[in-house]
Design a protein around this nucleic acid. Structure first.
Length: 973
RNA sequence: GCCCAAGUGGUGGAAUUGGUAUACACGCACGACUCAAAAUCGUGUGGCGCAAGCCAUGGGAGUUCGAGUCUCCCCUUGGGCACCA
């Protein structure tokens, strides 16, 4: 038999598969839609990391075809946008020409892998027949009021000379070029993505969605839902010295807070520099000059400066202005400070320095009052957890942490079940200081001590006290007490508890009451700001409520009195949708002096991108299209009067927000997608791509999909059922592959040297699919060797003299292994565990080789049907070699038109298994036994074993644990 | 700071429900073939120990007959968010 020559057979089969339209049978009963995130055809071509995701969908696609599915597996090009345009500018070619060249390169590179793409469905976002429908979606958004013009300040990249969306920023820098972004007031088209915020969030938990946790978490984080309340603070007018709240008062600010329960601790309020109240109160602000200087200074800061880590907070008090807290009618000062964001919530906050770190920092700096209104609440755990079936006593208590007079030790009381500090209830008419003095004397007998300080003034502890068979809900004050000497009197009840002295460093391991541990930690580190939920204090009638209860009641009170309301806020912003660049879809709008912004009528779509001489960005905030008068000047579709075309273009992400739909019906010139075809194919069953798209492409696409759902264009609420993210392939040096490091490996070279099948196999074998792993060319050598073995094995089928096909012991073992492999490979492909599928294939091939090719004594030959099964389960990974060997066996039909083998249960059980004998959990002996062995049988054999006897001799057998087909564990004393 | 994921040989990594830790592959060492090298094939390969055996899954506790796997605390790395009130 000739040698394995991947170069020849791969080319041959790729051609035959294409000619025979092998992948294009869409008439089967079951469907599967496998999709890769389509690439930008950049000028650099592919490196070995790019095809990893494509290989994975191809493996699944071929597996599904063999399992009787019609498989839609398309590919296309996301060719609009900055990278393509910048490449064109740099290389002085028109973007459309550069894009065409790059697409050709990419396509050629991808074809060398033998993917099952149906190139009849290829799409290109820059094709007018495609972007016609991108524009159509925009028009629909415009019609529904979801696309609007805005003049708010936006992110402007001075280098790319365009506006960017929030999603396009990385730490305040342009995601493309790393330039610092500045805020610029420009007219922009904006899509009202926030209208879908709640659905985008809620549907992430839908059962139709099988996404990795990390991506779901990232999206949830980005959407950033927070539930809180809006509270009106009236502006206090000193002329009338009227502090009472009037819901009809027009002079107020609204603050947004998620912690209305802390409002009795509010000691000032802050507005963002952008807040319009500053202008409104100009006359009333006595230091307006100072305020204005601050506003100008903060306007000039870049996003980076405003959000810089560890930045010291700054602000200016609005002298002469005070606002009124509606809950207690107290006035507090008002500040302007840029640590409050203008674009979130109401742009104004109430500041509670005792319970918010940022407010605390600001209050410290400007010497503002800090007022506590929430006390920590500790619920005890374990045996001390509060019991629902027992009654609860609420009481005021005191606790003392007592220090030894001359050693570094602390006093603890050891009760029957608990170990903690000294303390007890406060009796009526007793001050807390008196109570703690009394408790110490009663419980310890020591006479001479003094209170050093109060560690915690308010602390709530809630736990079950077994001694009294009830729950205690204690409102505690905690003292730090020092003994002056050890003089003591005898005490009455020495029976119930004893006094022990414990070293400072042993305390954490000994004290077993959660609230006492908390006290101990507070003795050592003072906690300045308590930001968690707790129990309200100093809050008038709300005192004693939990934070959760208080938020409910206080919000209800606000709504009743029209002084505020419940409010949900999202971090996610609307999508800034226009770019001042040439290479994008023209926004299909004309501006008419009479009618304003008017949508281009559907029948006039597409609005084609005009040919231009100079497509470099202007930098003026206008797109290069603005210079083409004959294109810009048009007539208004509504009134027929003179009008100008919108010259901004759409962002990169427009075309990719719906492309998965177009593959289903790529040539339809009447509709975006045929309704029946949409029902047949949607949703995408498997979507594979990079995790970097978690908060952009995947968010935008879900947004558009939901909009199209509302329009009735699609019938699924989510576009992508299962999402897998591809782990990066790093260079051999562990860094990212990049021209800059000169460590890029080109797939063409790898395929040239080892063949596409070896490379496919290696990339799937490297490790878990979603994980980043460094490339190793030696690894490809390994998978190539494996394929060589498979190749050579085919010569062992023929019957040689003296080798017959009978059911020998060895043959049964091979059958078992084969069927186990079928089972494992099937399950592993379905669960994206390609690495273990391949390792199992290697185990099988190694065994076959040992059994048939290397053993001189073997009496059987390899059965053709067994080898064929091997080829079938290998074929999704290494399609060319599988097809070649398949046809060499005399089969005329393609291997991919066969049926995926099913593991036969009757072969899955081993004849004989190794059973482990443990003594006290340690392996002492291994026995070969039948898998059906009973506990008594194996126990008898095990106890006779010399190795076991060493460890059981003279000892009593306390217990025997028997796990069928695994082990027996003998527990001895 | 917050959220997510992950820490296992020299390396990439295996280990269905808690049940033989290190499968598979790379690398390395030795051997065969060869004048020689490459390729190929064979043998070995967690650490300590002559051995019986002991110790090993980032560290520390816990639950269990038994923990890489479950619980708690801590450390490290990668990714995301970050003054979002």
């Amino acid at each position: 038999m000739e040698n394995y020559q991947p170069k020849e057979i791969e080319k041959k089969w790729q051609q035959k598969w294409e000619d025979s339209r092998l992948y294009k049978d869409y008439g089967r009963a079951k469907k599967f839609y496998a999709l890769n995130m389509f690439p930008y055809p950049s000028g650099a071509g592919l490196h070995v990391g790019h095809p990893k995701g494509n290989i994975a969908t191809d493996v699944v696609a071929r597996f599904k075809m063999l399992s009787g599915y019609s498989v839609l597996h398309p590919m296309g090009w996301d060719a609009f946008g900055l990278p393509a345009e910048n490449y064109a500018i740099k290389n002085k070619v028109h973007p459309s020409i550069a894009v065409a060249e790059n697409i050709a390169t990419f396509k050629k590179q991808l074809e060398a892998f033998g993917f099952t793409y149906d190139w009849d469905r290829e799409i290109d976002t820059t094709d007018p027949q495609y972007y016609k429908w991108t524009q159509w979606i925009f028009l629909k958004l415009f019609e529904k009021g979801l696309a609007y013009e805005s003049n708010e300040p936006v992110n402007w990249c001075p280098s790319c000379k365009t506006v960017l969306s929030n999603e396009d920023l990385e730490d305040g820098l342009c995601e493309r070029c790393g330039t610092q972004v500045v805020q610029k007031r420009l007219r922009q088209w904006v899509l009202k993505m926030t209208a879908y915020a709640d659905r985008l969030l809620v549907d992430l938990d839908s059962e139709d969605l099988d996404w990795e946790d990390s991506i779901i978490a990232q999206q949830k984080n980005w959407i950033g839902k927070s539930e809180g309340a809006i509270v009106k603070f009236s502006i206090f007018n000193s002329q009338f010295s009227n502090k009472s709240q009037n819901p009809n008062d027009q002079n107020f600010i609204e603050v947004f807070t998620t912690r209305v329960d802390t409002i009795f601790g509010c000691t000032y309020c802050v507005v963002a520099p952008e807040h319009k109240i500053i202008e409104q109160l100009k006359a009333q602000i006595s230091n307006y000059d100072e305020v204005e200087a601050y506003l100008i200074a903060s306007q000039n800061k870049t996003i980076l400066e405003r959000t810089e880590l560890q930045k010291e907070k700054t602000g200016v008090k609005l002298q002469g202005v005070e606002v009124v807290n509606p809950f207690n009618n107290e006035t507090v000062p008002l500040f302007v400070a840029d640590y409050v964001l203008g674009g979130y919530g109401t742009g104004a906050v109430m500041a509670v320095p005792a319970h918010d770190e940022r407010d605390f920092e600001f209050a410290k700096k400007y010497d503002l009052e800090i007022k506590k209104s929430v006390a920590p609440y500790i619920e005890l755990t374990g045996a001390f957890s509060p019991r629902l079936d027992k009654e609860t006593t609420r009481r005021n208590t005191v606790t003392a942490i007592i220090k030894h007079p001359n050693e570094n030790k602390y006093l603890l009381l050891k009760w029957q079940d608990s170990l903690g500090f000294v303390g007890g209830g406060i009796e009526s008419d007793e001050k807390s200081e008196e109570a703690i003095m009394r408790e110490i004397k009663e419980e310890t007998g020591y006479k001479n001590f003094h209170i050093e300080n109060v560690i915690i003034e308010h602390l709530y502890g809630h736990g079950y006290k077994a001694r009294k068979e009830k729950n205690n809900f204690d409102h505690d004050t905690v003292f730090f007490v020092k003994f002056d000497d050890l003089e003591k009197e005898s005490i009455a009840d020495t029976e119930t508890h004893e006094i022990i002295w414990v070293n400072e460093d042993e305390m954490d391991g000994i004290v077993n009451l959660d609230h006492h541990l908390y006290m101990w930690s507070r003795l050592k580190n003072e906690e300045a700001v308590f930001i968690k939920d707790g129990i309200l204090i100093n809050s008038e009638s709300y005192s004693g409520l939990t934070s959760v209860e208080a938020r409910e009641k206080m919000t209800a009170w606000l709504e009743e009195n029209k002084l505020g309301k419940k409010k949900v806020n999202f971090k996610m912003r609307d999508w800034i949708f226009s770019r001042q660049r040439y290479w994008g879809e023209p926004i299909p709008i004309v501006h008419c002096e009479k009618c304003g912004a008017v949508g281009v009528p559907e029948e006039q779509l597409p609005v084609r991108l005009p040919e231009v001489e100079n497509y470099e960005p202007t930098g003026t905030g206008e797109s290069p299209l603005a210079n083409i008068e004959q294109w810009v000047n048009t007539t208004c579709p509504k009134c027929g009067g003179p009008a100008k075309r919108e010259t901004n273009t759409m962002p990169q992400w427009a075309g990719s927000s719906w492309y998965y739909l177009r593959y289903i019906d790529p040539k339809n010139d009447k509709k975006l997608i045929d309704q029946q075809l949409e029902k047949d194919w949607m949703p995408v069953d498997l979507y594979v791509g990079g995790a970097e798209h978690a908060t952009r492409h995947l968010l935008y696409a879900r947004f558009w999909h939901k909009f199209l759902f509302d329009l009735g264009v699609v019938t699924t609420i989510e576009p992508f059922k299962k999402l897998m993210h591809v782990g990066l392939i790093l260079a051999q040096d562990g860094r990212k592959m990049s021209k800059r490091w000169n460590n890029v490996i080109n797939p063409d070279e790898v395929i040239g040297q080892f063949g596409a099948d070896s490379m496919r196999l290696y990339e799937m074998f490297m490790g878990p699919f979603s994980q980043s792993i460094a490339w190793s060319t030696n690894g490809v050598v390994g998978t190539r060797k494996f394929l060589e073995k498979v190749w050579k094995l085919s010569s062992q089928i023929n019957t040689e003299e003296g080798r017959i096909n009978t059911e020998t012991q060895n043959n049964k073992k091979i059958q078992t292994l084969l069927h186990k492999t079928i089972k494992k490979v099937t399950g592993d492909i379905e669960n994206f565990r390609f690495n273990t599928a391949i390792s199992q294939l290697m185990i099988l091939v190694n065994s076959l080789e040992k059994e048939y090719a290397k053993s001189a004594t073997t009496k059987t030959h390899m059965r053709k049907e067994d080898y064929e099964k091997l080829l079938l389960i290998l074929s999704p990974f290494a399609p060319h070699i599988a097809e070649e060997l398949w046809q060499k066996l005399g089969n005329e039909q393609s291997i991919f038109l066969q049926t995926w083998p099913v593991a036969d249960e009757k072969y899955l059980k081993d004849e004989e298994i190794e059973m482990v004998v443990q003594v006290n959990g340690k392996v002492r002996e291994r026995l070969m036994v039948s898998p059906d062995v009973t506990e008594d049988e194996i126990k008898e054999t095990a106890l006779e074993s010399e190795k076991v006897k060493i460890f059981t001799a003279g000892k009593e057998i306390k217990k025997v644990i028997f796990v069928p087909e695994k082990l027996i564990n003998i527990v001895v004393s």
